[in-house]
């Protein structure tokens, strides 16, 4: 298949996912609300003690992202399964890699909505401070790469769950261990950015490169594995 055709397929599928979501709204609101609830829960849990350190903020940010993100992703695939549209997609003459890539991108868009809730939540409730636009740019870059890596794994496994028993239970058990590198690099990088010294920003750049390498690796693995994994026995 020519690259242009492949990109065309991905774009078509991505537009379909976004349009469905904009009309239904279910996932957008549920995921954002869930993200807000998690940040609130964290702020209640740490209420009253010493003001939270930057390590805590970095941890809260990435744990909230992972929790809310996976809830949204798993619901999105469950809906496709209920309506049997996932089977339809897999049966259509589209390239399986295009299906995977479009799912990855639409899930990444969904997860960016979590960021829209969680980052302001941290600024408000945890007194998180960003030193200038450079730090914000670094943080957004880190989040974008982290989200890509996380969705690369999450969409591979949620699409492949097929008719496995206990899917809701199985998905987090499969996805969270594999996304530990993302959460780790993300939280460490965020800590370095929030810390805000010249040296810590250099360390943050190192975590950024680590995430980039992880993304390339996991998306390559995903493209390669999606076909055999989504084919049921």
């Amino acid at each position: 298949m020519s690259p242009a055709r492949f990109v065309g397929q991905v774009w078509l599928l991505l537009r379909k996912d976004v349009r469905v979501e904009l009309r239904a709204g279910e996932l957008i609101y549920a995921t954002m609300l869930f993200a807000a609830i998690i940040v609130l829960l964290f702020s209640f849990a740490f209420l009253g003690g010493a003001p939270p350190t930057v390590e805590v903020m970095a941890g809260v940010l990435w744990v909230a992202l992972a929790l809310a993100g996976l809830v949204g992703i798993s619901r999105s695939f469950e809906r496709e399964r209920e309506a049997d549209t996932l089977r339809g997609l897999l049966l259509s003459p589209l390239s399986r890699s295009a299906v995977y890539l479009s799912k990855l991108l639409s899930m990444a868009l969904l997860m960016s909505l979590v960021v829209v809730v969680v980052v302001p939540g941290l600024l408000l409730l945890f007194g998180m401070q960003l030193s200038g636009a450079g730090a914000l740019g670094h943080l957004l870059g880190l989040l974008a790469l982290g989200i890509l890596g996380f969705t690369a794994i999450a969409s591979l496994f949620s699409a492949s769950l097929g008719r496995a028993r206990g899917r809701e239970l199985l998905l987090p058990l499969l996805v969270y261990p594999l996304s530990v590198p993302v959460l780790l690099a993300g939280a460490r990088g965020t800590y370095d950015i929030l810390y805000g010294t010249q040296e810590s920003l250099i360390d943050a750049a190192r975590w950024l490169r680590f995430l980039l390498a992880f993304d390339v690796l996991s998306i390559t693995c995903g493209l390669w594995l999606f076909e055999p994994l989504s084919t049921n026995e």
């Binding site: 496994f157 496995a164 199985l170 594995l225 994994l229 049921n232 026995e233």
Partner: peptide
């Protein structure tokens, strides 16, 4: 616990 459909899934996990 995954039932019959989960063997391929587990194989993917083993690769990672």
């Amino acid at each position: 616990y995954g039932g019959p459909g989960a063997r391929r899934l587990a194989a993917g996990l083993a690769l990672f």
